[in-house]
Design a protein around this nucleic acid. Sequence first.
DNA 1: GTCTGTCTTCAGAAATTTCTGAACGTTCGC
DNA 2: GCGAACGTTCAGAAATTTCTGAAGACAGAC
Lengths: 160, 160
Amino acid sequence: MTGETERKRAARKDAAEHLALTLAGAGMQRMAARVLAAFLFTDEPSLTAGDLVAELGASAGSVSGAVKTVMQMGLIERVAAPGSRREHYRMRDRAWTTLYGRQHAPIDDILSAVARGVATVEPGPARERLIYMRDFYEFLLGEVPSLIERFEQRRAGPRP
Amino acid sequence: MTGETERKRAARKDAAEHLALTLAGAGMQRMAARVLAAFLFTDEPSLTAGDLVAELGASAGSVSGAVKTVMQMGLIERVAAPGSRREHYRMRDRAWTTLYGRQHAPIDDILSAVARGVATVEPGPARERLIYMRDFYEFLLGEVPSLIERFEQRRAGPRP
DNA sequence: GTCTGTCTTCAGAAATTTCTGAACGTTCGC
DNA sequence: GCGAACGTTCAGAAATTTCTGAAGACAGAC
Protein backbone atom coordinates (compact mmCIF):
# COMPACT_ATOMS: atom_id res chain seq x y z
CA MET A 1 0.00 0.00 0.00
CA THR A 2 2.92 2.29 0.61
CA GLY A 3 3.77 1.99 -3.05
CA GLU A 4 0.39 3.34 -4.03
CA THR A 5 0.58 6.22 -1.58
CA GLU A 6 4.09 7.02 -2.68
CA ARG A 7 3.04 7.08 -6.29
CA LYS A 8 0.26 9.52 -5.54
CA ARG A 9 2.58 11.71 -3.57
CA ALA A 10 4.95 11.80 -6.52
CA ALA A 11 2.12 12.67 -8.90
CA ARG A 12 1.06 15.53 -6.67
CA LYS A 13 4.60 16.81 -6.49
CA ASP A 14 4.86 16.65 -10.27
CA ALA A 15 1.64 18.59 -10.71
CA ALA A 16 2.81 21.18 -8.19
CA GLU A 17 6.14 21.56 -9.92
CA HIS A 18 4.46 21.89 -13.28
CA LEU A 19 2.19 24.65 -12.04
CA ALA A 20 5.16 26.40 -10.47
CA LEU A 21 7.06 26.41 -13.76
CA THR A 22 3.97 27.67 -15.57
CA LEU A 23 3.62 30.54 -13.13
CA ALA A 24 7.32 31.25 -13.59
CA GLY A 25 6.73 31.37 -17.32
CA ALA A 26 4.03 33.97 -16.68
CA GLY A 27 6.59 36.23 -15.03
CA MET A 28 6.80 35.11 -11.41
CA GLN A 29 10.20 34.38 -9.87
CA ARG A 30 10.89 30.68 -10.05
CA MET A 31 11.54 29.92 -6.41
CA ALA A 32 8.64 32.09 -5.30
CA ALA A 33 6.39 30.13 -7.64
CA ARG A 34 7.64 26.84 -6.22
CA VAL A 35 6.97 28.00 -2.69
CA LEU A 36 3.50 29.14 -3.64
CA ALA A 37 2.75 25.81 -5.30
CA ALA A 38 3.91 23.98 -2.20
CA PHE A 39 1.36 25.85 -0.11
CA LEU A 40 -1.30 25.36 -2.72
CA PHE A 41 -0.83 21.60 -2.92
CA THR A 42 -0.40 20.71 0.74
CA ASP A 43 -3.08 19.32 3.02
CA GLU A 44 -1.12 20.45 6.07
CA PRO A 45 -2.65 23.42 7.88
CA SER A 46 0.66 25.27 7.78
CA LEU A 47 4.24 24.91 6.60
CA THR A 48 7.54 26.13 8.02
CA ALA A 49 10.61 27.30 6.15
CA GLY A 50 12.21 23.99 7.09
CA ASP A 51 9.31 22.06 5.58
CA LEU A 52 9.77 23.97 2.36
CA VAL A 53 13.50 23.29 2.29
CA ALA A 54 12.76 19.57 2.60
CA GLU A 55 9.89 19.61 0.14
CA LEU A 56 11.58 21.66 -2.56
CA GLY A 57 15.15 20.50 -2.16
CA ALA A 58 16.40 24.08 -2.21
CA SER A 59 18.79 25.93 0.06
CA ALA A 60 17.53 27.60 3.22
CA GLY A 61 18.71 30.90 1.83
CA SER A 62 16.68 30.87 -1.33
CA VAL A 63 13.63 29.57 0.50
CA SER A 64 13.92 32.42 2.97
CA GLY A 65 14.04 34.96 0.18
CA ALA A 66 11.17 33.37 -1.72
CA VAL A 67 8.94 33.19 1.37
CA LYS A 68 9.60 36.86 1.94
CA THR A 69 8.62 37.65 -1.64
CA VAL A 70 5.46 35.59 -1.57
CA MET A 71 4.43 37.12 1.72
CA GLN A 72 4.97 40.65 0.41
CA MET A 73 2.71 39.67 -2.46
CA GLY A 74 0.06 38.98 0.13
CA LEU A 75 -0.42 35.35 -0.89
CA ILE A 76 0.65 33.70 2.36
CA GLU A 77 0.58 34.85 5.97
CA ARG A 78 2.24 34.01 9.25
CA VAL A 79 0.12 31.89 11.51
CA ALA A 80 0.38 31.62 15.28
CA ALA A 81 2.31 28.52 16.26
CA PRO A 82 2.18 28.00 19.99
CA GLY A 83 4.63 25.48 21.29
CA SER A 84 6.83 25.66 18.22
CA ARG A 85 9.93 27.69 17.73
CA ARG A 86 9.51 27.90 14.00
CA GLU A 87 7.51 30.38 11.97
CA HIS A 88 4.45 28.79 10.43
CA TYR A 89 2.86 30.04 7.22
CA ARG A 90 -0.28 29.28 5.27
CA MET A 91 -2.06 30.56 2.18
CA ARG A 92 -4.40 33.45 2.63
CA ASP A 93 -8.04 33.02 1.71
CA ARG A 94 -8.12 35.84 -0.78
CA ALA A 95 -4.87 34.79 -2.37
CA TRP A 96 -6.00 34.62 -5.97
CA THR A 97 -7.97 37.77 -6.15
CA THR A 98 -5.08 39.45 -4.35
CA LEU A 99 -2.62 38.11 -6.88
CA TYR A 100 -4.74 39.31 -9.75
CA GLY A 101 -5.09 42.72 -8.21
CA ARG A 102 -1.35 42.90 -7.79
CA GLN A 103 -0.70 41.90 -11.36
CA HIS A 104 -2.35 45.16 -12.22
CA ALA A 105 -0.05 47.21 -10.05
CA PRO A 106 2.38 47.75 -12.93
CA ILE A 107 -0.49 49.41 -14.77
CA ASP A 108 -0.13 52.35 -12.43
CA ASP A 109 3.46 52.74 -13.50
CA ILE A 110 2.61 52.42 -17.15
CA LEU A 111 -0.15 54.96 -16.76
CA SER A 112 2.24 57.46 -15.23
CA ALA A 113 4.76 56.93 -17.99
CA VAL A 114 2.10 57.42 -20.66
CA ALA A 115 0.75 60.51 -18.96
CA ARG A 116 4.24 61.92 -19.05
CA GLY A 117 4.30 61.19 -22.75
CA VAL A 118 1.03 62.99 -23.31
CA ALA A 119 2.33 65.99 -21.42
CA THR A 120 5.53 66.01 -23.45
CA VAL A 121 4.38 65.44 -27.00
CA GLU A 122 2.81 68.17 -29.11
CA PRO A 123 -0.47 67.65 -30.95
CA GLY A 124 -0.20 65.12 -33.77
CA PRO A 125 -0.63 61.42 -34.46
CA ALA A 126 1.73 60.38 -31.68
CA ARG A 127 -0.20 62.38 -29.14
CA GLU A 128 -3.49 60.85 -30.28
CA ARG A 129 -2.01 57.40 -29.86
CA LEU A 130 -0.73 58.19 -26.39
CA ILE A 131 -4.10 59.54 -25.34
CA TYR A 132 -5.81 56.40 -26.58
CA MET A 133 -3.39 54.24 -24.65
CA ARG A 134 -3.84 56.30 -21.53
CA ASP A 135 -7.62 56.05 -21.77
CA PHE A 136 -7.45 52.31 -22.17
CA TYR A 137 -5.27 51.72 -19.15
CA GLU A 138 -7.34 54.12 -17.10
CA PHE A 139 -10.42 52.18 -18.06
CA LEU A 140 -8.78 48.91 -17.05
CA LEU A 141 -7.65 50.22 -13.74
CA GLY A 142 -11.19 51.23 -12.97
CA GLU A 143 -12.72 47.94 -14.01
CA VAL A 144 -10.51 45.49 -12.16
CA PRO A 145 -11.96 46.02 -8.68
CA SER A 146 -15.51 45.49 -9.87
CA LEU A 147 -14.40 42.40 -11.73
CA ILE A 148 -12.98 40.88 -8.58
CA GLU A 149 -16.01 41.90 -6.60
CA ARG A 150 -18.29 40.22 -9.10
CA PHE A 151 -16.36 36.98 -8.76
CA GLU A 152 -16.56 37.01 -5.00
CA GLN A 153 -20.26 37.72 -5.07
CA ARG A 154 -20.85 34.90 -7.49
CA ARG A 155 -18.89 32.63 -5.19
CA ALA A 156 -20.79 33.71 -2.13
CA GLY A 157 -24.18 33.72 -3.83
CA PRO A 158 -24.86 30.06 -4.71
CA ARG A 159 -23.86 28.95 -1.22
CA PRO A 160 -25.64 30.91 1.49
CA MET B 1 14.62 77.98 -32.98
CA THR B 2 16.54 74.84 -33.69
CA GLY B 3 17.52 74.83 -30.05
CA GLU B 4 13.92 74.77 -28.99
CA THR B 5 12.99 72.03 -31.44
CA GLU B 6 15.98 70.01 -30.43
CA ARG B 7 15.04 70.28 -26.80
CA LYS B 8 11.55 69.04 -27.49
CA ARG B 9 12.84 66.16 -29.50
CA ALA B 10 15.07 65.19 -26.63
CA ALA B 11 12.17 65.41 -24.18
CA ARG B 12 10.08 63.18 -26.38
CA LYS B 13 12.87 60.67 -26.65
CA ASP B 14 13.26 60.69 -22.88
CA ALA B 15 9.57 60.09 -22.34
CA ALA B 16 9.63 57.27 -24.89
CA GLU B 17 12.61 55.65 -23.25
CA HIS B 18 11.01 55.96 -19.84
CA LEU B 19 7.84 54.25 -21.01
CA ALA B 20 9.90 51.52 -22.66
CA LEU B 21 11.73 50.79 -19.43
CA THR B 22 8.45 50.76 -17.53
CA LEU B 23 6.98 48.25 -19.95
CA ALA B 24 10.15 46.19 -19.60
CA GLY B 25 9.66 46.28 -15.85
CA ALA B 26 6.19 44.90 -16.41
CA GLY B 27 7.64 41.85 -18.12
CA MET B 28 8.18 42.84 -21.73
CA GLN B 29 11.55 42.24 -23.37
CA ARG B 30 13.59 45.40 -23.22
CA MET B 31 14.39 45.89 -26.88
CA ALA B 32 10.86 44.98 -27.91
CA ALA B 33 9.56 47.62 -25.52
CA ARG B 34 11.93 50.22 -26.96
CA VAL B 35 10.78 49.42 -30.48
CA LEU B 36 7.16 49.65 -29.42
CA ALA B 37 7.75 53.01 -27.76
CA ALA B 38 9.44 54.30 -30.89
CA PHE B 39 6.34 53.54 -32.92
CA LEU B 40 4.11 54.98 -30.24
CA PHE B 41 5.96 58.28 -30.06
CA THR B 42 6.60 58.98 -33.73
CA ASP B 43 4.59 61.29 -35.94
CA GLU B 44 5.90 59.54 -39.03
CA PRO B 45 3.33 57.38 -40.80
CA SER B 46 5.72 54.43 -40.78
CA LEU B 47 9.20 53.40 -39.69
CA THR B 48 11.76 51.05 -41.21
CA ALA B 49 14.21 48.82 -39.39
CA GLY B 50 16.90 51.30 -40.39
CA ASP B 51 14.97 54.15 -38.78
CA LEU B 52 14.77 52.17 -35.59
CA VAL B 53 18.48 51.40 -35.62
CA ALA B 54 19.18 55.13 -35.91
CA GLU B 55 16.56 56.13 -33.35
CA LEU B 56 17.43 53.57 -30.72
CA GLY B 57 21.17 53.31 -31.24
CA ALA B 58 20.99 49.54 -31.23
CA SER B 59 22.44 46.95 -33.56
CA ALA B 60 20.57 45.90 -36.68
CA GLY B 61 20.47 42.37 -35.29
CA SER B 62 18.67 43.12 -32.09
CA VAL B 63 16.28 45.50 -33.85
CA SER B 64 15.43 42.79 -36.33
CA GLY B 65 14.64 40.34 -33.52
CA ALA B 66 12.64 42.88 -31.57
CA VAL B 67 10.57 43.91 -34.59
CA LYS B 68 9.80 40.26 -35.19
CA THR B 69 8.68 39.86 -31.59
CA VAL B 70 6.50 42.96 -31.57
CA MET B 71 4.92 41.95 -34.83
CA GLN B 72 4.13 38.48 -33.54
CA MET B 73 2.46 40.19 -30.61
CA GLY B 74 0.20 41.85 -33.14
CA LEU B 75 1.14 45.38 -32.11
CA ILE B 76 2.69 46.54 -35.37
CA GLU B 77 2.12 45.55 -38.99
CA ARG B 78 3.91 45.74 -42.31
CA VAL B 79 2.70 48.51 -44.54
CA ALA B 80 2.97 48.68 -48.30
CA ALA B 81 5.92 50.81 -49.36
CA PRO B 82 5.95 51.31 -53.10
CA GLY B 83 9.16 52.67 -54.47
CA SER B 84 11.15 51.69 -51.43
CA ARG B 85 13.26 48.68 -50.94
CA ARG B 86 12.85 48.70 -47.19
CA GLU B 87 10.09 47.15 -45.14
CA HIS B 88 7.87 49.77 -43.54
CA TYR B 89 6.00 49.17 -40.29
CA ARG B 90 3.42 51.03 -38.27
CA MET B 91 1.36 50.48 -35.13
CA ARG B 92 -1.90 48.68 -35.53
CA ASP B 93 -5.09 50.41 -34.49
CA ARG B 94 -6.17 47.79 -32.00
CA ALA B 95 -2.71 47.53 -30.49
CA TRP B 96 -3.61 48.13 -26.87
CA THR B 97 -6.62 45.93 -26.61
CA THR B 98 -4.62 43.30 -28.47
CA LEU B 99 -1.77 43.62 -26.02
CA TYR B 100 -4.10 43.28 -23.08
CA GLY B 101 -5.74 40.25 -24.60
CA ARG B 102 -2.35 38.68 -25.11
CA GLN B 103 -1.29 39.37 -21.56
CA HIS B 104 -4.03 36.97 -20.64
CA ALA B 105 -2.75 34.19 -22.87
CA PRO B 106 -0.64 32.76 -20.03
CA ILE B 107 -3.87 32.27 -18.12
CA ASP B 108 -4.70 29.43 -20.45
CA ASP B 109 -1.49 27.71 -19.46
CA ILE B 110 -2.07 28.32 -15.78
CA LEU B 111 -5.59 27.00 -16.10
CA SER B 112 -4.35 23.77 -17.67
CA ALA B 113 -1.75 23.32 -14.97
CA VAL B 114 -4.31 23.87 -12.24
CA ALA B 115 -6.78 21.51 -13.88
CA ARG B 116 -4.07 18.88 -13.87
CA GLY B 117 -3.63 19.52 -10.18
CA VAL B 118 -7.33 19.08 -9.53
CA ALA B 119 -7.28 15.82 -11.42
CA THR B 120 -4.27 14.61 -9.47
CA VAL B 121 -5.05 15.56 -5.89
CA GLU B 122 -7.48 13.60 -3.74
CA PRO B 123 -10.27 15.32 -1.80
CA GLY B 124 -9.00 17.55 0.99
CA PRO B 125 -7.99 21.16 1.66
CA ALA B 126 -5.50 21.23 -1.20
CA ARG B 127 -8.10 20.12 -3.68
CA GLU B 128 -10.55 22.77 -2.46
CA ARG B 129 -7.89 25.40 -2.93
CA LEU B 130 -7.07 24.20 -6.43
CA ILE B 131 -10.74 24.20 -7.39
CA TYR B 132 -11.11 27.75 -6.13
CA MET B 133 -8.10 28.86 -8.11
CA ARG B 134 -9.38 27.13 -11.23
CA ASP B 135 -12.78 28.77 -10.89
CA PHE B 136 -11.21 32.18 -10.52
CA TYR B 137 -9.04 31.93 -13.59
CA GLU B 138 -11.92 30.46 -15.58
CA PHE B 139 -14.02 33.43 -14.57
CA LEU B 140 -11.29 35.85 -15.61
CA LEU B 141 -10.80 34.22 -18.96
CA GLY B 142 -14.49 34.61 -19.65
CA GLU B 143 -14.66 38.25 -18.58
CA VAL B 144 -11.71 39.70 -20.47
CA PRO B 145 -13.32 39.76 -23.92
CA SER B 146 -16.42 41.56 -22.68
CA LEU B 147 -14.18 44.01 -20.83
CA ILE B 148 -12.36 44.91 -24.01
CA GLU B 149 -15.60 45.11 -25.94
CA ARG B 150 -17.02 47.50 -23.40
CA PHE B 151 -14.03 49.79 -23.80
CA GLU B 152 -14.31 49.85 -27.55
CA GLN B 153 -18.01 50.58 -27.40
CA ARG B 154 -17.47 53.41 -24.98
CA ARG B 155 -14.83 54.79 -27.32
CA ALA B 156 -17.08 54.50 -30.35
CA GLY B 157 -20.18 55.83 -28.61
CA PRO B 158 -19.35 59.47 -27.79
CA ARG B 159 -18.10 60.05 -31.34
CA PRO B 160 -20.61 58.91 -33.98
C1' DG C 1 22.87 38.90 -64.89
C1' DT C 2 25.18 41.61 -61.69
C1' DC C 3 25.50 44.90 -58.20
C1' DT C 4 24.00 47.39 -54.19
C1' DG C 5 21.46 48.24 -50.27
C1' DT C 6 18.70 46.06 -46.72
C1' DC C 7 17.32 42.56 -43.62
C1' DT C 8 18.03 38.12 -41.10
C1' DT C 9 20.54 34.61 -38.70
C1' DC C 10 23.72 32.94 -35.46
C1' DA C 11 27.80 32.28 -32.52
C1' DG C 12 29.96 34.44 -28.95
C1' DA C 13 30.23 38.33 -25.35
C1' DA C 14 28.13 41.01 -21.82
C1' DA C 15 24.88 41.83 -18.40
C1' DT C 16 21.43 40.41 -15.46
C1' DT C 17 19.03 37.35 -12.66
C1' DT C 18 18.92 33.49 -9.52
C1' DC C 19 20.82 30.10 -6.36
C1' DT C 20 23.85 28.46 -2.93
C1' DG C 21 26.58 27.99 1.32
C1' DA C 22 28.62 29.88 5.22
C1' DA C 23 28.56 33.20 8.88
C1' DC C 24 25.66 35.73 11.91
C1' DG C 25 21.37 36.88 14.81
C1' DT C 26 17.46 35.51 17.38
C1' DT C 27 14.44 33.03 20.20
C1' DC C 28 13.10 29.43 23.11
C1' DG C 29 13.85 25.61 26.47
C1' DC C 30 16.26 24.51 30.29
C1' DG D 1 22.38 32.91 31.60
C1' DC D 2 23.67 28.94 28.41
C1' DG D 3 23.00 25.97 24.67
C1' DA D 4 20.84 24.53 20.56
C1' DA D 5 17.73 24.91 16.79
C1' DC D 6 16.07 28.08 13.15
C1' DG D 7 15.94 31.67 10.23
C1' DT D 8 18.21 35.56 7.72
C1' DT D 9 21.68 37.97 5.19
C1' DC D 10 25.20 38.46 1.90
C1' DA D 11 29.18 37.59 -1.11
C1' DG D 12 30.31 34.82 -4.72
C1' DA D 13 29.06 31.11 -8.32
C1' DA D 14 26.04 29.38 -11.79
C1' DA D 15 22.64 29.79 -15.15
C1' DT D 16 19.86 32.39 -18.01
C1' DT D 17 18.71 36.15 -20.77
C1' DT D 18 19.94 39.81 -23.91
C1' DC D 19 22.92 42.27 -27.11
C1' DT D 20 26.26 42.71 -30.61
C1' DG D 21 28.89 42.10 -34.89
C1' DA D 22 29.94 39.58 -38.85
C1' DA D 23 28.50 36.59 -42.46
C1' DG D 24 24.99 35.38 -45.52
C1' DA D 25 20.37 35.70 -48.02
C1' DC D 26 17.15 38.25 -50.52
C1' DA D 27 15.07 41.78 -53.58
C1' DG D 28 15.07 45.37 -56.79
C1' DA D 29 17.74 48.73 -59.95
C1' DC D 30 20.27 48.96 -63.81
